[in-house]
């Protein structure tokens, strides 16, 4: 189905997106729903966006569920490997 389940968060960072330009991203939307391009019926979708720059200021990811879990693990591992003196 179009799952309707949607999780939002405010973030602070940058993404490289349309036109190979970097832009400041302020919002992320995460949901499990039909992809536009990935070859799966449903995927874990992540939109990094800057709403004040308009709809096209978006970097979109569509990951299979296993890939999304692998990404979560990789992020957690990377954060866990940060030396204590660098942690913020």
């Amino acid at each position: 189905m179009c799952t309707y389940s949607t999780v939002k968060a405010e973030i602070d960072g940058s993404a490289k997106g349309p036109g190979s330009s970097w832009f400041h991203v302020t919002d992320v939307t995460v949901y499990f729903d039909h992809p536009v391009h990935a070859m799966a019926e449903h995927t874990l979708n992540i939109d990094f966006a800057a709403p004040d720059r308009g709809p096209s200021a978006r970097v979109a990811l569509e990951l299979t569920a296993d890939s999304a879990r692998a990404l979560v693990t990789a992020i957690q591992d990377a954060l866990a490997a940060v030396p204590a003196e660098m942690a913020v």
């Binding site: 949607t6 939002k8 308009g54 979109a60």
Partner: peptide, 20 residues
């Protein structure tokens, strides 16, 4: 209303983020 002239997938992303 949310995204006049935007690509359909970008418009849908805005619509979803705004609550559908």
């Amino acid at each position: 209303r949310e995204a006049p002239g935007a690509a359909p997938d970008d418009a849908a992303a805005v619509g979803r983020a705004n609550g559908g």
